[in-house]
Design a protein around this nucleic acid. Structure first.
Lengths: 232, 232
DNA sequence: TTCACAATTTTGTTGCAACAAAAATGCAGC
DNA sequence: GCTGCATTTTTGTTGCAACAAAATTGTGAA
């Protein structure tokens, strides 16, 4: 009796339900910036977008809402959240705790192959930044982070972190083109890769935390400018 | 323009949807130990239990499942999770990170009234333990913890913590009557209250972390015994 | 232009039936 | 008793229509 008691023997690949597929696609659209902060979502519109009936569309919206990736602004109005300074601070504090933990744990499990994978992702980030394909850079940046987090061997933790990225994801698309000027995150990523190579947990954690804090500062600045610009 | 952009002016009390009510009731049943680890849940049974149609029942189950409070053991089988050692470790690590953060932040906002509230909760815990009303003791224990966490002023963090309690909640009911012998958590709670009074963030965090680790040890022990006893 | 308010359209929720698929059951055969 | 297999029952998902409620639009007055 060694396996997880909750896993059935043949739960290898359950056929994906329409609701799950809708959820997955919505998630990707949110991260990729297809839906921007403030965008309003309706059950019927999503159903049409994804070419399913209202039930799976509603499932997906409900799930995203209960995760905090979408928010109610009225009894019948769901939108992609517009983060204010308070939200941003809360999410960042939580990210530091969770992603810090994941990084720390990851340090114990890194292999040379993982480091290679990260280097390859970093090259993709770099060239995307250089060629001003910002959305793509963000996408690879996400992959870079999660490649590390998955090394923690703590899948539930990883999915909690994912739900946090879903909350800030849309706002990140408001950062470019400015954010590329300083080569977003490059230095921190380099240190992270070195730390992983050396299995230095504290250093890896510090590098990832720095990266999160960097992003936070940029978002906060952009938020202030934006807030000042649109309030008139 | 100061308020949260996502909140509509009159979002005071949206009328509760049946699905939300079902979710809330299910959550309480899970925490209170009505549904024990391994218990199988079906849409139609839940619908009947809560006296609603299948749609809200399905909503509630789906939501709980995506939170990790319920798990699939087969394509059509949802059960209250039976935690193994790996799950337990992962949840505990995450709890330490999140509840540690919440405690730290809470220390800055505690008032004498809050301390009184905690003392009152602790009295309830003590008498429940003494009179062997274990389920009640667990309930008040939960309130004790969340009264502190809510002081953090980080509502999203609190609800992430709640989802973790939902995952371990059912397993806690397998601990008694043994767990009362050592007056579960009393000492840590006392230190926590003192720390809050003195606004000592590090000390409050340490006390809460100790409490979490204590619980973890008990669960791990009970898990081993149970595992050994049922494998034959 | 701005505001208030009424008319109209849009929208989420809910209940339910049909269907395919999975789980439970029963039954041989050993 | 136990295993393997076929039958029966149970189950989740999906699509959809009806309904009440909310959001939007349009109108007119100041």
């Amino acid at each position: 009796m060694a396996g997880n008691l909750n896993e059935a023997p043949d739960l290898e690949r359950a056929p994906e339900r329409l609701g799950d597929a809708a959820y997955r696609q919505m998630k990707e659209r949110i991260i990729r910036g297809v839906y921007r902060p403030g965008h309003k979502l309706t059950v019927r519109a999503v159903a049409q977008d994804l070419d399913v009936s209202t039930t799976p569309a509603r499932d997906a919206i409900n799930r995203l809402t209960s995760e905090g990736a979408l928010v109610y602004t009225g009894p019948k109005t769901v939108v992609v959240p517009v983060l204010d300074a308070t939200d941003l601070r809360e999410i960042t504090l939580t990210r530091l705790a969770l992603e810090g933990l994941a990084s720390e744990q990851a340090a114990q499990h890194g292999t040379p192959a993982n480091v290679e994978e990260l280097k390859s992702l970093q090259r993709l980030i770099n060239s995307a930044l250089q060629e001003k394909r910002y959305a793509e850079a963000l996408w690879h940046n996400k992959e870079f982070h999660f490649t590390i987090y998955r090394l923690s061997g703590l899948p539930q933790l990883v999915s909690m972190i994912e739900s946090l990225w879903l909350r800030i994801g849309p706002s990140l698309h408001n950062l470019y083109p400015e954010f590329a000027e300083e080569k977003y995150g490059v230095r921190n990523h380099e240190i992270a890769m070195e730390s992983l190579e050396e299995r230095d947990a504290a250093s890896l954690r510090a590098a990832m935390e720095n990266d999160i804090r960097d992003g936070y500062r940029r978002l906060k600045r952009a938020n202030l400018e934006r807030g000042a610009g649109t309030s008139a």
